[in-house]
């Protein structure tokens, strides 16, 4: 397992070299997104303006997060950035947004079934957090914009520039592997005797 720094724009070669379990830090522009935000973002008409802006800014990373933000008189300040489970956003919405915006990095929490196959097809990676959420926020060097503030501060989309945000762990890489899937194989072995004893069937 290696440690890699990803500076935007991230090339396809660099992405192909990433393996499930690697540790990465990232620099560049990213945006936060939760469930309602995704609905707006992928809406054919309603999301067009924001999608255009994200493309112009070269934002190629989505962070499934409802950050803790301090509203300032001039500029908002990120206090902490905590991940939201990626399955809460839903695979269909994520895939649509990645397709519309050409995203390369998806940051979230936990495993989302089937996302590893999509990452392989689309050439993007799913990263999960293993960090200090205050330090993540401290890596935000600039809050660029806030879209759809009427959704409330945590659900709105925050577009920010980060420098060295991490560590993040590669869950799904571009080769169809998922770290959580590998871990799950070990879990099934470790838990086998208890599962049998209590007559528990796994999904």
């Amino acid at each position: 397992m290696k440690t890699v720094h990803l500076a935007s724009p991230v090339s396809d070669e660099v992405l192909r070299d990433l393996d499930a379990g690697d540790s990465v830090t990232i620099s560049g522009r990213l945006f936060t997104c939760r469930s309602l935000t995704y609905d707006r973002l992928i809406n054919p008409e309603g999301g067009e303006g924001v999608r255009k802006r994200l493309k112009e800014l070269g934002a190629e990373t989505v962070f499934h997060s409802g950050p803790l933000v301090k509203e300032g008189p001039e500029q908002a300040e990120m206090i902490a950035m905590v991940p939201m489970p990626s399955w809460l956003a839903g695979r269909e919405k994520i895939e649509k947004a990645v397709g519309l915006l050409g995203l390369k990095l998806i940051i979230g929490k936990g495993m989302l079934e089937g996302l590893e196959e999509f990452c392989k097809r689309a050439g993007c990676v799913h990263l999960v957090c293993a960090g200090n959420y205050n330090e993540y926020a401290a890596r935000v060097v600039r809050v660029i914009d806030c879209a759809w503030p009427e959704l409330g501060r945590p659900e709105a989309m925050w577009i920010v520039e980060v420098d060295g945000l991490g560590p993040l762990i590669v869950d799904a890489d571009t080769k169809g592997r998922s770290l959580y899937q590998d871990i799950d194989e070990g879990f099934k072995e470790d838990a086998a005797s208890l599962l049998e004893e209590l007559d528990i069937k796994l999904d």
């Binding site: 997060s65 950050p67 206090i79 902490a80 205050n134 330090e135 926020a137 871990i183």
Partner: peptide, 28 residues
């Protein structure tokens, strides 16, 4: 290895938060 990294992140977040007078998790 991953377990230890996560526990360290938890402890670091609390240390940072206490030092800077800020919440240690964004979900307050």
């Amino acid at each position: 290895e991953f377990g230890k990294a996560h526990l360290k992140a938890n402890l670091d977040a609390v240390a940072t938060a206490s030092a800077r007078n800020m919440p240690f998790c964004a979900d307050t």
